[in-house]
């Protein structure tokens, strides 16, 4: 038997939020690109009674870059990110991730909001956004609230979103001039592969001192997370190779990967350390 559900097709954000609030939000699911959700419904991992399709909520598909802040509507696709010259300038890590995101047709459909909402530790847009200190706006009929992406996930595929809430945008303050923002994904092959390990890095340096370090790790824990102890080793310091070694080891020690079909936990720990050190070394070379 196919899995059946009701399908609402709202034409505006207000209509979408009303639809999500029906039945007090129980068993209602927003649908964006469908590249995860349609599969999860078909395999009965998700069993919504009602699906709210967001294709025509056009106000959610927008990229807005000012000199101060970057705002991306949740319905923006991965291809939209690749096509944006402004994103290429403001968020290089996000472009690094978008380039190696699944395959061509999936990039055309999959969205920024959907990638966050699916809650997978292997979601490739999440480490870059976390390394940028992105904030997620959740909206419902009763109002909006903003949550740091770093605080958004509470466990494997668990998050702080209430059933009647919709991720409407992500936004962050632009990085200062002397900064590097980068992402590296390790997969079994270059395209169409689920991430084995992913590392996103932001380093801000002023007068030779690291003012801000962000290291966000993918596929080495129940959620994407920030390696805060590794970051703390770097911040306020004059950067050096010794410091990179220590931070890379610390990032690995903060990870809790599992064995699965793609790689062993041991391999993931090894590659997290290697990738973290490599990204830090490369960032330092570019800032010097």
């Amino acid at each position: 038997m196919p899995v059946e559900y009701e399908l609402d097709i709202p034409q505006s954000l207000d209509e979408a939020l009303n639809a999500l609030a029906s039945d007090n939000g129980s068993s209602v699911t927003p649908l964006a690109g469908g590249t995860n959700l349609i599969i999860d419904i078909r395999s009965r991992r998700e069993r919504p009674a009602r699906v709210v399709g967001l294709d025509y909520v056009s106000e959610l598909r927008a990229i807005d870059c000012t000199s101060e802040r970057v705002t991306i509507g949740s319905r923006t696709t991965v291809t939209d990110l690749l096509d944006s010259a402004e994103i290429a300038k403001a968020a290089p890590s996000l472009v690094d991730a978008a380039r190696v995101f699944a395959g061509h047709m999936v990039r055309n459909a999959a969205t920024v909001g959907g990638n966050i909402a699916c809650g997978s530790p292997a979601a490739d847009l999440v480490p870059p956004l976390m390394s940028l200190d992105a904030e997620v706006t959740l909206s419902s009929k009763s109002g909006s609230r903003t949550v740091a992406l770093a605080d958004y996930f509470t466990g494997y595929k668990q998050d702080v979103r209430n059933a009647d809430e919709l991720i409407t945008q992500v936004a962050w303050d632009r990085l200062p001039e002397h900064s590097v923002n980068t992402f590296r994904k390790l997969g079994r092959r270059k395209g169409d592969a689920i991430t084995v390990t992913g590392v996103a890095l932001t380093v801000v340096v002023e007068d030779g001192v690291c003012q801000r370090a962000r290291i966000a790790l993918g596929s080495v824990g129940p959620t994407v997370f920030r390696a805060r102890q590794a970051e703390a080793l770097l911040e306020g310091k004059v950067l050096s190779n010794e410091l990179f070694d220590a931070a890379a080891r610390k990032a690995a020690s903060e990870s809790s990967p599992i064995d699965d079909v793609r790689a062993s936990a041991e391999y993931r720990l090894h590659t997290i350390e290697t990738l973290t050190r490599r990204l830090l070394t490369q960032a330092w070379a570019r800032l010097a």
Partner: peptide, 13 residues
Amino acid sequence: GVAVDSCLTLAWM
């Protein structure tokens, strides 16, 4: 004009 996987697209949409 945009290529998508029709298996992941709902006909109503």
